[in-house]
Design a protein around this nucleic acid. Structure first.
Lengths: 373, 373
DNA sequence: TTGTAGGCGTTATCAC
DNA sequence: GTGATAACGCCTACAA
């Protein structure tokens, strides 16, 4: 009979090799293998092989209090930004015998808490959090319970958590530099939500960049989204365009916002890039397939995942390992959505006479440039 | 001291309630709660609450041989087709206390086997397979081990597995109908890989549809991709266009293939939809943002996931539950990439004189229509 | 209705 | 170097 229906257990292996289960255990575990004689180790290994022995991770977990499972909290897997990151995480974790439990929070606090609790109940060995808003109860909870945590694309001051994220400030500065180098001076910004660190940092990068080129920024030139979504991009794009009739370029804090902005341009009969240059952030998959292909600031998604995994594993293996704040450098990707000012239809040229803009536009107020805080 | 560092165990609860652990266990489990007096049940519940008791799922799993964990094998999370499906799965599974372990196989057989083995070792309670090629060793393995399995977007004859998929044949027929109703008669097909059921079914649907309109299909009018990817779409699109100079429409077996086909058209200086109508399959997220927005055949991704979860849970709860083959109806989504033949530049109009096509085009061979097998 | 006892499969800690 | 023993936390016959 080649195949017993009950899977072979350590006892079976021990019996087959004529040793005590404890010895078999030692022989099979790399860490304790050296405690056992070469010869018996061999015998046990053969027996295990022959019986098709697979250690039962559940039993092992119960004993070692290690589940080899990592909880990963992300806003929404449907956001194309995350799949590559998650793959990076999973691939790297798998290499070390860990698996990831993915939890979608939809940025809903109660849902997030639920998922978090669920995962704690399942005794995950650590967490990767990509959802943390700046002041988040689960951060405190995790800190108090001394859980290994790595923040992804988020930073949180005041907690002893490692994090890996993009240098958002530098990235957005590069976006402004790019537009400025194309000759644009009247540049609007669709800012990300200000309760997450990326939104704050990118806004700061925008101001910095403008400042660096001696460009002033009117209050009305910045519209803040309440979330990173196409809908918010549409809303903010509308507002921005209606309030600022002389813009020639828009920096969106994220690709989805930029996509929404495309829609706003469409509505107003404006074309990108002929009438308006637009640049996003993230270089989401497929964003290069839009028409026009979106210029954006790329960061290495997959690598973000692998680095986060490394940081977390490090922390799990050694609870005293130092907290590390890792920034990955972003990279500007110029595509068809940004063109030189010279190639841009002058803001005064074709707009007014075609009265494409809504009637309730307000006169442009020129204020003092807001500075980096 | 409000917070003991060691989490409360069942013994602790029992002690606090002044009962035996067994009684506490019964009181806390819905199924056995009725075996215990109302009053003690109350007392135990309070104690549990007070101590913040969380049952240890690892210990429970060891005892009950249920991990409440489901293995999900998909080709690649980066394929935008899958996130919504996976979310459907996860959401529904979570509702029943299960979590999903996602495994990316990259359609690599050895990798797939590895992931499968890993998950078996972790004692998952069942599998959802979205990767199964038509003849797949893990199907046999799962069948022999009598593992609960549900196939997703795949069907496999000869195995007692439930499955949920789209009616691919009907969907592709609808695509052909759509083009035919627009007046197109010279329609090419980029077929999906023929070792997965979707590729086969959609090809059959294509032939059926053409047949239904009395349209013949030359051998050269069908080019078969080796995988569902943009690259393959590009390659097949090139081949199709070079070999068939009079096509006015192309049916791609999948959106990614269609996107690749867009690229092939670009290369040849052909425009969609002016010179060529293109239709895809899947209605991937963001595919409506392409220029032109891709006409396609939509199916309910999220629902596919939830249905698969239901089928699997049913099978897990009751091993004797009947095998169910579930088909979800697809729906045609007409967008900008398909236009009436009347609006299409005649195939002979502008192409030859601009010699956009490669020199090595072969003369069109008209053969017998291939029929449904 | 509740308590007793045993075991799920593994590993840590003793002895020998 | 190896064996014996206990324990991780929970559940479930069975007995009372």
């Amino acid at each position: 009979m080649p195949h017993n229906d009950r899977p072979a257990t350590l006892r079976d292996v021990a019996a087959a090799a004529g040793v005590h289960p404890a010895t078999a255990s030692r022989a099979l575990n790399p860490g304790t293998k050296l405690l056992v004689s070469e010869e018996t180790a061999q015998r046990v290994a053969e027996a295990a092989e022959r019986l098709g022995y697979r250690p039962n991770p559940v039993a092992r977990s119960l004993r070692t209090r290690r589940s080899h499972t990592i909880g990963v909290l992300i806003p929404d897997l449907n956001n194309p930004l995350f799949p590559p990151i998650v793959r990076g995480l999973e691939d790297r974790l798998a290499k070390h015998g860990y698996v990831a439990l993915i939890g979608n929070t939809d940025l809903d606090t109660t849902r997030e808490q639920m998922v978090f609790d669920q995962m704690r109940a399942r005794h995950v060995d650590g967490f990767v959090l990509a959802t943390a808003t700046l002041h988040n109860p689960i951060l405190a909870e995790a800190a108090e319970a001394d859980l290994p945590v790595v923040l992804m694309n988020r930073t949180a001051q005041g907690y002893p958590f490692s994090s890996v994220s993009v240098d958002n400030e530098q990235g957005e500065r590069a976006a402004v530099d790019h537009l400025a180098s194309l000759g644009h001076t009247r540049i609007g910004h669709i800012a990300g939500p200000q309760d997450v660190s990326t939104g704050v940092a990118r806004l700061r990068g925008f101001f910095d960049g403008m400042d660096g080129h001696g460009l002033t920024v009117d209050d009305a030139q910045v519209v803040t989204a309440t979330g990173y979504s196409i809908e918010e991009g549409l809303r903010c794009g509308r507002e921005l365009l209606e309030t600022n009739r002389d813009l020639t370029a828009i920096v969106a804090a994220n690709d989805l916002l930029a996509v929404g902005c495309y829609g706003a341009l469409d509505e107003l009969g404006l074309r990108c890039p002929e009438d308006m240059s637009v640049i996003g952030f993230n270089d989401m998959p497929f964003i290069d397939r839009l028409r026009p292909p979106l210029s954006t600031v790329r960061f290495p998604h997959y690598k973000l995942g692998t680095e986060a995994a490394d940081l977390l594993l490090e922390r799990i293996e050694d609870a005293d390992s130092p907290v590390k704040i890792l920034y990955l450098a972003p990279e500007l990707v110029a595509r068809g959505s940004t063109v030189p000012l010279a190639a841009t239809t002058s803001a005064d040229d074709g707009r007014d006479d075609e009265s494409r803009l809504a009637a309730n536009t307000v006169p442009l107020r020129r204020g003092v440039a807001r500075r980096k805080r």
